[in-house]
Design a protein around this nucleic acid. Structure first.
Length: 275
DNA sequence: CGTTACCCCTGGAGGC
DNA sequence: TGCCTCCAGGGGTAAC
């Protein structure tokens, strides 16, 4: 999936095509995603206009709230989801589960593993939706600083890497960007989060920000099946220093990249550069 | 409370 | 070629 940069790139790709457009229909071929898509979604959405597209963590938020009976469409891409814009009446392929139909284009959700979600929130207050209510800080916001993260991790014994991936603390950082950011900051993923200094957290938050921003600027990484919202492959793959590079030389010191498992996820790091 | 384990699902890679 | 096992960018819930 789609970590934060891929979702943000999808948002930026969709926005100019969908902003101000009216939904003329919805096709649900597979209602059983992570959450069952409710029957009757089509009649609820038809006639509504997409006024804006926002992002909160890894959720895309389509603002369709301006008319009576309106609300917000929340889309999560899970591990394997992608959105693309296709011409009307384009035949659906395998795993194309949902279409949002507009006059001149169709927004198509494809998700082989079906860990993604499409949720509807009636009314204007999208922040009240249960999926969003408990989410943590945005890593690209001004408030996300070394001082903030240092304070938020006092007393936490959990290793820093799985804690960075906890969306209740900070959103959008998945397995790849956690690994790459910790490498750039020279911090071991195994280190207890409560035992990292303020100085090092300042470096880490800067590394997270620059890694995410570089990936967004480059159009999102394309590690496996990420597809741009216009249907083309992402134009740039973030050159990973450690992720998925087990046994290969660290780009800085040539030490073989080591791998382990944390909280059920693969972790990659340089045992020399990261302490 | 904090933390880990498991599960949801399909497909690709690699071993035999 | 086929069959098997393992692994994958997320996240929610149950259990320790």
């Amino acid at each position: 999936m789609p970590e934060l940069p891929e979702v943000e790139v999808s948002r930026q790709g969709l926005l100019p095509h969908l902003s101000g457009q009216t939904i003329v229909g919805t096709v649900v071929r597979t209602p059983r995603l992570r959450h069952e898509i409710p029957v009757g979604l089509d009649s609820r959405l038809s006639g509504l206009q997409v006024d804006a597209i926002l992002r909160r963590g890894k959720y895309l938020l389509l603002d369709c709230a301006s008319k009576r009976g309106g609300g917000w469409l929340l889309i999560h891409l899970g591990m394997s989801g992608s959105l693309r814009l296709v011409p009307p009446a384009t035949p659906a392929q395998k795993h194309d589960h949902v279409d949002l139909v507009f006059k001149n284009t169709v927004m198509r959700l494809r998700d082989p593993r079906r860990f993604g979600a499409l949720l509807w929130h009636e009314g204007a207050e999208v922040g009240a939706h249960p999926a969003l209510a408990a989410l943590g800080i945005e890593p690209l916001s001004d408030a996300f600083s070394g001082d903030w993260l240092h304070a938020a991790t006092r007393g936490r014994r959990m290793p820093v890497k799985p804690l960075l991936m906890d969306s209740r603390l900070v959103v959008g950082i998945g397995n790849i960007y956690a690994a790459e950011s910790l490498f750039r900051a020279g911090i071991s993923p195994l280190r207890g989060a409560g035992r990292i200094s303020l100085q090092r957290y300042r470096i880490l938050t800067g590394a997270i920000r620059s890694t995410l921003e570089a990936s967004i600027a480059a159009g999102g990484s394309t590690v496996r099946d990420y597809v741009h919202s216009d249907g083309g492959a992402g134009c740039f793959q973030l050159a990973c220093a450690v992720y998925d590079r087990r046994g290969q030389p660290c780009p800085v010191c040539m030490t073989p990249i080591r791998t382990t498992r944390q909280a059920g996820r693969s972790t990659f790091y340089c045992p020399t550069c990261q302490r």
